[in-house]
Design a protein around this nucleic acid. Structure first.
Lengths: 187, 187
DNA sequence: TTTATTTTTTATCATTTGTTAAACAGTTTC
DNA sequence: GAAACTGTTTAACAAATGATAAAAAATAAA
Protein backbone atom coordinates (compact mmCIF):
# COMPACT_ATOMS: atom_id res chain seq x y z
CA UNK A 1 0.00 0.00 0.00
CA UNK A 2 1.31 3.45 -0.94
CA UNK A 3 2.14 5.98 1.76
CA UNK A 4 -0.41 8.57 0.55
CA UNK A 5 -3.21 6.09 1.00
CA UNK A 6 -1.90 4.97 4.38
CA UNK A 7 -1.78 8.54 5.69
CA UNK A 8 -5.19 9.48 4.31
CA UNK A 9 -6.85 6.31 5.60
CA UNK A 10 -5.86 7.28 9.13
CA UNK A 11 -7.22 10.78 8.59
CA UNK A 12 -7.35 12.78 5.35
CA UNK A 13 -4.63 15.42 5.26
CA UNK A 14 -4.30 18.35 2.81
CA UNK A 15 -1.30 18.01 0.49
CA UNK A 16 0.99 20.55 2.23
CA UNK A 17 0.64 18.88 5.62
CA UNK A 18 0.94 15.43 4.08
CA UNK A 19 4.11 16.48 2.31
CA UNK A 20 5.64 17.55 5.61
CA UNK A 21 5.19 14.01 6.88
CA UNK A 22 6.33 12.44 3.63
CA UNK A 23 9.54 14.48 3.65
CA UNK A 24 10.52 12.65 6.81
CA UNK A 25 9.75 9.19 5.48
CA UNK A 26 12.17 6.87 3.73
CA UNK A 27 11.50 3.48 2.19
CA UNK A 28 13.39 0.43 3.40
CA UNK A 29 13.19 -3.30 2.90
CA UNK A 30 14.11 -6.19 5.15
CA UNK A 31 14.13 -9.96 4.65
CA UNK A 32 11.81 -12.48 6.23
CA UNK A 33 12.85 -13.17 9.80
CA UNK A 34 14.32 -9.72 10.42
CA UNK A 35 13.80 -8.48 13.97
CA UNK A 36 12.67 -4.89 13.58
CA UNK A 37 12.23 -4.00 17.26
CA UNK A 38 13.97 -5.54 20.26
CA UNK A 39 12.23 -5.41 23.63
CA UNK A 40 15.34 -4.32 25.52
CA UNK A 41 16.13 -1.41 23.22
CA UNK A 42 14.66 2.07 23.00
CA UNK A 43 13.31 2.41 19.50
CA UNK A 44 13.39 5.78 17.79
CA UNK A 45 11.47 4.86 14.66
CA UNK A 46 7.99 3.89 13.58
CA UNK A 47 7.07 2.14 10.35
CA UNK A 48 4.18 1.60 8.00
CA UNK A 49 3.92 -1.62 6.04
CA UNK A 50 3.99 -1.11 2.28
CA UNK A 51 4.24 -4.84 1.63
CA UNK A 52 4.68 -7.74 4.02
CA UNK A 53 3.47 -8.99 7.35
CA UNK A 54 4.80 -8.65 10.88
CA UNK A 55 4.11 -9.87 14.39
CA UNK A 56 4.83 -8.47 17.84
CA UNK A 57 5.57 -10.94 20.58
CA UNK A 58 6.86 -11.06 24.12
CA UNK A 59 8.16 -13.83 26.30
CA UNK A 60 6.26 -15.64 28.99
CA UNK A 61 9.07 -17.66 30.50
CA UNK A 62 10.48 -19.65 27.58
CA UNK A 63 7.46 -19.15 25.35
CA UNK A 64 6.99 -16.47 22.75
CA UNK A 65 3.45 -15.13 22.79
CA UNK A 66 2.29 -13.18 19.75
CA UNK A 67 -0.12 -10.38 20.60
CA UNK A 68 -0.24 -8.35 17.40
CA UNK A 69 -0.15 -8.89 13.64
CA UNK A 70 0.37 -6.16 11.06
CA UNK A 71 -0.17 -6.31 7.30
CA UNK A 72 -0.15 -3.94 4.36
CA UNK A 73 -1.18 -0.45 5.48
CA UNK A 74 -0.72 -1.10 9.18
CA UNK A 75 1.61 0.91 11.42
CA UNK A 76 4.39 -0.79 13.36
CA UNK A 77 4.80 1.12 16.60
CA UNK A 78 6.03 0.25 20.04
CA UNK A 79 3.63 2.39 22.03
CA UNK A 80 5.84 2.54 25.13
CA UNK A 81 8.62 3.89 22.95
CA UNK A 82 6.36 6.17 20.97
CA UNK A 83 4.45 7.65 23.90
CA UNK A 84 6.83 7.48 26.85
CA UNK A 85 10.24 7.07 25.23
CA UNK A 86 10.64 3.95 27.32
CA UNK A 87 11.53 0.39 26.41
CA UNK A 88 8.59 -1.64 25.21
CA UNK A 89 7.91 -5.24 26.13
CA UNK A 90 7.79 -6.53 22.58
CA UNK A 91 9.98 -7.77 19.80
CA UNK A 92 8.66 -7.23 16.29
CA UNK A 93 9.56 -9.80 13.62
CA UNK A 94 8.90 -9.64 9.89
CA UNK A 95 7.24 -12.84 8.70
CA UNK A 96 7.83 -12.16 5.00
CA UNK A 97 10.33 -10.18 2.94
CA UNK A 98 8.89 -6.72 3.55
CA UNK A 99 8.91 -3.17 2.23
CA UNK A 100 8.42 -0.52 4.89
CA UNK A 101 8.03 3.22 5.24
CA UNK A 102 10.29 4.42 8.01
CA UNK A 103 9.83 7.56 10.09
CA UNK A 104 11.80 8.96 13.01
CA UNK A 105 9.51 9.38 15.99
CA UNK A 106 11.17 12.62 16.96
CA UNK A 107 10.54 14.22 13.58
CA UNK A 108 6.89 13.33 13.86
CA UNK A 109 6.70 14.68 17.40
CA UNK A 110 8.14 17.98 16.16
CA UNK A 111 5.54 18.16 13.41
CA UNK A 112 2.82 17.61 16.02
CA UNK A 113 3.98 20.73 17.83
CA UNK A 114 4.25 22.85 14.71
CA UNK A 115 1.26 21.94 12.60
CA UNK A 116 -2.27 21.63 13.99
CA UNK A 117 -3.46 19.47 11.09
CA UNK A 118 -0.69 17.00 11.76
CA UNK A 119 -1.38 17.16 15.50
CA UNK A 120 -4.97 16.16 14.81
CA UNK A 121 -3.81 13.48 12.41
CA UNK A 122 -1.63 12.10 15.20
CA UNK A 123 -4.59 12.27 17.56
CA UNK A 124 -6.69 10.34 15.09
CA UNK A 125 -3.93 7.79 14.69
CA UNK A 126 -3.95 6.99 18.39
CA UNK A 127 -7.73 7.02 18.57
CA UNK A 128 -7.98 4.44 15.83
CA UNK A 129 -5.32 2.26 17.44
CA UNK A 130 -7.24 2.57 20.70
CA UNK A 131 -10.46 1.38 19.07
CA UNK A 132 -8.58 -1.60 17.67
CA UNK A 133 -7.05 -2.39 21.02
CA UNK A 134 -10.40 -2.19 22.79
CA UNK A 135 -11.97 -4.50 20.25
CA UNK A 136 -9.22 -7.06 20.87
CA UNK A 137 -9.67 -6.69 24.62
CA UNK A 138 -13.44 -7.16 24.48
CA UNK A 139 -13.03 -10.14 22.18
CA UNK A 140 -10.53 -11.78 24.55
CA UNK A 141 -12.82 -11.21 27.50
CA UNK A 142 -16.16 -12.09 25.91
CA UNK A 143 -15.60 -14.68 23.24
CA UNK A 144 -14.51 -18.30 23.36
CA UNK A 145 -11.30 -19.32 21.63
CA UNK A 146 -13.39 -20.81 18.81
CA UNK A 147 -15.27 -17.54 18.30
CA UNK A 148 -12.03 -15.58 18.31
CA UNK A 149 -10.52 -17.90 15.72
CA UNK A 150 -13.55 -17.58 13.43
CA UNK A 151 -13.56 -13.79 13.86
CA UNK A 152 -9.88 -13.61 12.93
CA UNK A 153 -10.49 -15.72 9.81
CA UNK A 154 -13.40 -13.53 8.80
CA UNK A 155 -11.53 -10.28 9.35
CA UNK A 156 -8.35 -11.50 7.75
CA UNK A 157 -8.85 -14.68 5.69
CA UNK A 158 -5.39 -14.89 4.17
CA UNK A 159 -3.64 -14.95 7.54
CA UNK A 160 -3.86 -18.74 7.54
CA UNK A 161 -1.71 -18.85 4.42
CA UNK A 162 0.75 -16.25 5.63
CA UNK A 163 1.30 -17.02 9.31
CA UNK A 164 2.00 -20.31 11.00
CA UNK A 165 -0.58 -21.69 13.38
CA UNK A 166 1.69 -21.56 16.42
CA UNK A 167 1.71 -17.76 16.16
CA UNK A 168 -2.02 -17.59 15.58
CA UNK A 169 -2.67 -19.85 18.56
CA UNK A 170 -0.69 -17.67 20.93
CA UNK A 171 -2.40 -14.57 19.48
CA UNK A 172 -5.73 -16.19 20.35
CA UNK A 173 -4.49 -16.89 23.87
CA UNK A 174 -4.44 -20.67 23.54
CA UNK A 175 -1.89 -23.39 22.84
CA UNK A 176 -1.18 -24.72 19.40
CA UNK A 177 -2.70 -28.04 20.45
CA UNK A 178 -5.96 -26.32 21.41
CA UNK A 179 -6.09 -24.53 18.08
CA UNK A 180 -5.65 -27.82 16.28
CA UNK A 181 -8.57 -29.25 18.23
CA UNK A 182 -10.71 -26.22 17.37
CA UNK A 183 -9.84 -26.53 13.69
CA UNK A 184 -10.70 -30.23 13.75
CA UNK A 185 -14.12 -29.50 15.30
CA UNK A 186 -15.05 -26.79 12.81
CA UNK A 187 -14.71 -28.85 9.65
CA UNK B 1 -9.85 15.02 42.17
CA UNK B 2 -10.03 18.62 40.86
CA UNK B 3 -10.34 19.28 37.15
CA UNK B 4 -7.09 21.24 36.90
CA UNK B 5 -5.15 18.28 38.18
CA UNK B 6 -7.02 15.86 35.93
CA UNK B 7 -6.25 17.92 32.84
CA UNK B 8 -2.60 18.47 33.72
CA UNK B 9 -2.02 14.82 34.62
CA UNK B 10 -3.01 13.84 31.10
CA UNK B 11 -0.68 16.46 29.67
CA UNK B 12 0.30 19.82 31.19
CA UNK B 13 -1.54 22.69 29.53
CA UNK B 14 -0.81 26.43 29.84
CA UNK B 15 -3.57 28.30 31.66
CA UNK B 16 -5.18 29.95 28.59
CA UNK B 17 -5.64 26.65 26.80
CA UNK B 18 -6.74 24.93 29.98
CA UNK B 19 -9.33 27.63 30.56
CA UNK B 20 -10.79 27.02 27.11
CA UNK B 21 -11.47 23.44 28.11
CA UNK B 22 -12.70 24.38 31.56
CA UNK B 23 -15.20 26.85 30.11
CA UNK B 24 -16.93 23.92 28.46
CA UNK B 25 -17.05 21.79 31.58
CA UNK B 26 -19.87 21.67 34.12
CA UNK B 27 -20.03 19.73 37.37
CA UNK B 28 -22.81 17.21 37.93
CA UNK B 29 -23.64 14.54 40.47
CA UNK B 30 -25.53 11.30 40.18
CA UNK B 31 -26.57 8.68 42.73
CA UNK B 32 -25.20 5.16 43.07
CA UNK B 33 -26.72 2.90 40.46
CA UNK B 34 -27.21 5.63 37.87
CA UNK B 35 -26.69 4.44 34.32
CA UNK B 36 -24.56 7.12 32.69
CA UNK B 37 -24.22 5.60 29.19
CA UNK B 38 -26.58 3.18 27.48
CA UNK B 39 -25.20 0.88 24.80
CA UNK B 40 -28.02 1.53 22.35
CA UNK B 41 -27.75 5.32 22.53
CA UNK B 42 -25.34 7.71 20.85
CA UNK B 43 -23.64 9.58 23.63
CA UNK B 44 -22.61 13.19 23.11
CA UNK B 45 -20.74 13.70 26.39
CA UNK B 46 -17.60 12.59 28.11
CA UNK B 47 -16.92 12.80 31.83
CA UNK B 48 -14.10 12.91 34.33
CA UNK B 49 -14.60 11.46 37.79
CA UNK B 50 -14.18 13.99 40.56
CA UNK B 51 -15.40 11.55 43.18
CA UNK B 52 -16.85 8.08 42.86
CA UNK B 53 -16.36 4.89 40.93
CA UNK B 54 -17.85 3.51 37.74
CA UNK B 55 -17.86 0.40 35.62
CA UNK B 56 -18.46 -0.28 31.95
CA UNK B 57 -20.12 -3.54 31.03
CA UNK B 58 -21.70 -5.27 28.10
CA UNK B 59 -23.93 -8.28 27.76
CA UNK B 60 -22.86 -11.74 26.77
CA UNK B 61 -26.25 -13.39 26.44
CA UNK B 62 -27.89 -12.85 29.82
CA UNK B 63 -24.67 -12.05 31.64
CA UNK B 64 -23.23 -8.64 32.28
CA UNK B 65 -19.47 -8.62 31.80
CA UNK B 66 -17.54 -5.72 33.29
CA UNK B 67 -14.54 -4.71 31.21
CA UNK B 68 -13.56 -1.35 32.69
CA UNK B 69 -13.45 0.38 36.08
CA UNK B 70 -12.93 4.10 36.59
CA UNK B 71 -12.12 5.94 39.77
CA UNK B 72 -11.21 9.47 40.85
CA UNK B 73 -9.33 11.26 38.05
CA UNK B 74 -10.29 8.77 35.34
CA UNK B 75 -12.15 9.71 32.17
CA UNK B 76 -15.46 8.08 31.27
CA UNK B 77 -15.61 7.83 27.51
CA UNK B 78 -17.34 5.56 25.08
CA UNK B 79 -14.63 5.41 22.44
CA UNK B 80 -16.97 4.38 19.63
CA UNK B 81 -19.06 7.46 20.38
CA UNK B 82 -16.06 9.71 20.92
CA UNK B 83 -14.09 8.66 17.85
CA UNK B 84 -16.67 7.52 15.31
CA UNK B 85 -19.91 9.09 16.59
CA UNK B 86 -21.37 5.60 16.60
CA UNK B 87 -23.15 3.61 19.29
CA UNK B 88 -20.80 1.90 21.69
CA UNK B 89 -21.24 -1.61 23.03
CA UNK B 90 -21.18 -0.64 26.69
CA UNK B 91 -23.37 0.60 29.48
CA UNK B 92 -21.62 2.64 32.17
CA UNK B 93 -22.97 2.43 35.72
CA UNK B 94 -21.96 4.47 38.74
CA UNK B 95 -21.17 2.21 41.68
CA UNK B 96 -21.20 5.01 44.28
CA UNK B 97 -22.83 8.40 44.61
CA UNK B 98 -20.54 10.33 42.27
CA UNK B 99 -19.44 13.81 41.32
CA UNK B 100 -18.47 14.22 37.69
CA UNK B 101 -17.08 16.81 35.33
CA UNK B 102 -19.14 16.81 32.17
CA UNK B 103 -18.01 17.93 28.74
CA UNK B 104 -19.77 17.90 25.37
CA UNK B 105 -17.73 15.90 22.90
CA UNK B 106 -18.49 18.33 20.11
CA UNK B 107 -17.13 21.30 22.03
CA UNK B 108 -13.91 19.43 22.63
CA UNK B 109 -13.67 18.42 18.97
CA UNK B 110 -14.01 22.08 17.99
CA UNK B 111 -11.22 23.04 20.37
CA UNK B 112 -9.02 20.37 18.81
CA UNK B 113 -9.40 22.08 15.44
CA UNK B 114 -8.78 25.58 16.76
CA UNK B 115 -5.98 25.22 19.29
CA UNK B 116 -2.82 23.21 18.64
CA UNK B 117 -2.04 22.84 22.34
CA UNK B 118 -5.44 21.33 22.94
CA UNK B 119 -5.09 19.14 19.85
CA UNK B 120 -1.87 17.75 21.30
CA UNK B 121 -3.52 17.36 24.70
CA UNK B 122 -6.23 15.32 22.99
CA UNK B 123 -3.58 13.29 21.23
CA UNK B 124 -1.89 12.59 24.55
CA UNK B 125 -5.21 11.64 26.08
CA UNK B 126 -5.76 8.89 23.50
CA UNK B 127 -2.15 7.77 23.68
CA UNK B 128 -2.40 7.25 27.42
CA UNK B 129 -5.68 5.39 27.10
CA UNK B 130 -4.06 3.26 24.42
CA UNK B 131 -1.18 2.35 26.71
CA UNK B 132 -3.69 1.36 29.39
CA UNK B 133 -5.67 -0.72 26.96
CA UNK B 134 -2.57 -2.50 25.70
CA UNK B 135 -1.50 -3.30 29.24
CA UNK B 136 -4.90 -4.84 29.93
CA UNK B 137 -4.71 -6.81 26.71
CA UNK B 138 -1.23 -8.15 27.42
CA UNK B 139 -2.25 -9.03 30.95
CA UNK B 140 -5.32 -10.95 29.73
CA UNK B 141 -3.25 -12.83 27.20
CA UNK B 142 -0.16 -13.54 29.30
CA UNK B 143 -1.18 -13.85 32.92
CA UNK B 144 -3.26 -16.40 34.78
CA UNK B 145 -6.46 -15.31 36.49
CA UNK B 146 -4.64 -15.46 39.82
CA UNK B 147 -1.87 -13.18 38.56
CA UNK B 148 -4.42 -10.75 37.14
CA UNK B 149 -6.28 -10.67 40.44
CA UNK B 150 -3.11 -9.98 42.41
CA UNK B 151 -2.06 -7.29 39.92
CA UNK B 152 -5.43 -5.59 40.23
CA UNK B 153 -5.18 -5.63 44.03
CA UNK B 154 -1.69 -4.18 43.89
CA UNK B 155 -2.59 -1.44 41.43
CA UNK B 156 -5.84 -0.59 43.12
CA UNK B 157 -6.08 -2.02 46.68
CA UNK B 158 -9.31 -0.35 47.70
CA UNK B 159 -11.28 -1.83 44.82
CA UNK B 160 -12.16 -4.82 47.00
CA UNK B 161 -13.94 -2.52 49.41
CA UNK B 162 -15.67 -0.50 46.72
CA UNK B 163 -16.75 -3.03 44.09
CA UNK B 164 -18.51 -6.34 44.52
CA UNK B 165 -16.65 -9.48 43.62
CA UNK B 166 -19.04 -10.48 40.84
CA UNK B 167 -17.97 -7.40 38.88
CA UNK B 168 -14.31 -7.99 39.62
CA UNK B 169 -14.60 -11.60 38.52
CA UNK B 170 -16.08 -10.69 35.16
CA UNK B 171 -13.44 -7.96 34.75
CA UNK B 172 -10.80 -10.63 35.26
CA UNK B 173 -12.47 -12.82 32.66
CA UNK B 174 -13.56 -15.54 35.08
CA UNK B 175 -16.72 -16.54 36.96
CA UNK B 176 -17.47 -15.45 40.47
CA UNK B 177 -17.01 -19.04 41.62
CA UNK B 178 -13.51 -19.14 40.15
CA UNK B 179 -12.61 -15.89 41.87
CA UNK B 180 -13.79 -17.31 45.18
CA UNK B 181 -11.55 -20.33 44.66
CA UNK B 182 -8.60 -18.09 43.83
CA UNK B 183 -9.20 -16.01 46.94
CA UNK B 184 -9.42 -19.16 49.07
CA UNK B 185 -6.09 -20.43 47.70
CA UNK B 186 -4.21 -17.19 48.27
CA UNK B 187 -4.83 -16.91 51.98
C1' DT C 1 13.44 -38.24 -5.70
C1' DT C 2 15.09 -39.07 -1.21
C1' DT C 3 16.28 -37.25 3.12
C1' DA C 4 16.02 -33.98 6.64
C1' DT C 5 13.58 -30.39 8.87
C1' DT C 6 9.65 -27.90 10.14
C1' DT C 7 4.85 -27.59 10.96
C1' DT C 8 0.51 -29.53 12.23
C1' DT C 9 -2.42 -32.98 14.18
C1' DT C 10 -3.66 -36.67 17.35
C1' DA C 11 -3.63 -39.15 21.77
C1' DT C 12 -3.36 -39.45 26.78
C1' DC C 13 -3.64 -37.70 31.16
C1' DA C 14 -3.58 -33.82 34.58
C1' DT C 15 -5.26 -29.32 35.75
C1' DT C 16 -8.14 -25.54 35.46
C1' DT C 17 -12.37 -23.41 34.87
C1' DG C 18 -17.41 -23.55 34.17
C1' DT C 19 -22.13 -24.83 35.71
C1' DT C 20 -25.49 -25.57 38.97
C1' DA C 21 -27.11 -25.82 43.45
C1' DA C 22 -26.84 -25.18 48.16
C1' DA C 23 -24.95 -23.20 52.34
C1' DC C 24 -23.33 -19.29 54.74
C1' DA C 25 -22.72 -14.38 55.97
C1' DG C 26 -23.89 -9.73 55.98
C1' DT C 27 -27.54 -5.97 55.24
C1' DT C 28 -31.76 -4.07 55.03
C1' DT C 29 -36.70 -3.88 55.97
C1' DC C 30 -40.57 -4.50 58.61
C1' DG D 1 -35.28 -9.41 66.45
C1' DA D 2 -37.28 -12.10 62.56
C1' DA D 3 -37.77 -12.21 57.70
C1' DA D 4 -36.25 -11.09 53.25
C1' DC D 5 -32.69 -9.91 50.29
C1' DT D 6 -27.98 -9.50 48.54
C1' DG D 7 -23.43 -10.98 48.23
C1' DT D 8 -19.91 -14.61 48.91
C1' DT D 9 -18.19 -19.20 49.50
C1' DT D 10 -18.26 -24.19 49.06
C1' DA D 11 -19.35 -28.67 46.89
C1' DA D 12 -19.97 -31.95 43.05
C1' DC D 13 -19.70 -32.93 38.53
C1' DA D 14 -19.00 -31.66 33.47
C1' DA D 15 -16.42 -29.41 29.97
C1' DA D 16 -12.51 -27.08 28.24
C1' DT D 17 -7.73 -26.37 28.07
C1' DG D 18 -2.82 -27.38 29.16
C1' DA D 19 1.37 -30.39 29.01
C1' DT D 20 3.88 -33.87 27.00
C1' DA D 21 4.91 -37.10 23.60
C1' DA D 22 4.39 -39.22 19.34
C1' DA D 23 2.52 -39.57 14.66
C1' DA D 24 1.42 -37.49 10.38
C1' DA D 25 1.79 -34.02 6.91
C1' DA D 26 4.02 -30.40 4.58
C1' DT D 27 8.12 -28.00 3.22
C1' DA D 28 12.94 -27.40 2.28
C1' DA D 29 17.48 -29.24 1.26
C1' DA D 30 20.61 -32.52 -0.73
Amino acid sequence: MEIDQIIDTIHPLPAPAKNLIKESIIETRFPKGHILFKADKIETRIYFIKKGIARAYAYSGENQITFWFGKEGDPIVSMQNYVNKQKGYEDVELLEDSELYELKTEKLQNLFLENIQIANWGRKFSELELIRSEERLISLQFDTATQRYLALLKKYPSIIQRVQLAHIASYLGITQVSLSRIRANIK
